Amino acid sequence: MKHRAITSASSNYAFVGRIAATVIGLAWSAVWTGLTLSILWAWFVIPNFNVPHLSIADGYGIALILRAGLGLREGETKGSENFAHTFQTLMWTAPCASGLFIALGWVAKAWA
């Protein structure tokens, strides 16, 4: 009986940990997405269309609107990867993708 109680408690902690990690991961990617969009907005949209500056929060909101329009693609459904690997991928993907977009934008801005 004691073994079952320990297993149940550890699975509860694992569930709470997954929820916390998901919230942290979403916040982490939100900051990077908003930062990227606000920088690219300042480089390309403001000079061409004379519109107001875009904050990080506004940039993330626009990204959410666009993402909601795309819907869930088949490749993004729940897979067989373990949670730790998925979380590590999320933590590295956001800054790497943002850095790539900013670098490509910087190159395009240098040519403009």
Rank of each mutant, 00 (worst) to 15 (best):
T36R: 04
G59R: 00
I19L: 14
A5E: 09
P52F: 03
A21K: 07
G17D: 05
I39Y: 05
R4E: 09
V51I: 09
T93D: 12
L64V: 12
H53N: 06
G59W: 00
W28D: 13
K2T: 13
E81D: 14
W28L: 08
S10E: 13
A20V: 11
V31M: 11
I46T: 15
S10G: 03
L26V: 12
F44Y: 08
A57Y: 00
L90K: 10
T36K: 04
W92I: 09
V16K: 02
S10A: 12
W28Q: 05
V23M: 05
I19D: 00
V45W: 07
A63F: 09
F83T: 07
F44C: 08
A84E: 15
N48G: 04
L70W: 02
V51T: 10
L66D: 02
D58Y: 00
L72I: 04
F44W: 06
A57H: 00
F87W: 11
T33G: 11
S38N: 02
A84T: 15
F44L: 07
A21I: 10
A57W: 06
N82P: 06
F49L: 11
G69H: 00
N12G: 15
K78W: 04
N12D: 11
L35G: 03
W92A: 08
A68M: 10
L66A: 08
G25L: 01
I62W: 14
Y13C: 12
W92L: 09
V51D: 04
A68G: 12
R67C: 04
L35Q: 06
I62R: 06
S80I: 04
L72R: 08
A27I: 15
A94K: 01
W32L: 02
P52D: 01
T22H: 12
A20T: 10
A27C: 14
I24W: 09
H3G: 05
R73Y: 06
A42N: 10
V31Q: 10
F83L: 09
H3M: 11
V45K: 01
A97S: 10
A97L: 14
M91H: 04
I39H: 01
G75W: 02
E74S: 02
A27F: 02
F87P: 00
L66G: 11
L35V: 14
L72Y: 00
H85S: 12
T33I: 14
S10V: 14
L40Q: 05
L64D: 00
L54F: 14
V23Q: 04
I56R: 01
G34E: 06
K2V: 14
V45H: 01
L64T: 09
A94G: 05
R67F: 03
A27N: 14
S80A: 11
E76P: 01
I19Y: 08
L64S: 08
G34V: 05
I24D: 08
G79P: 03
N12Q: 13
N12T: 15
G59I: 02
I24L: 14
G75I: 01
A30D: 07
N12V: 15
A21Y: 06
A94I: 07
D58C: 07
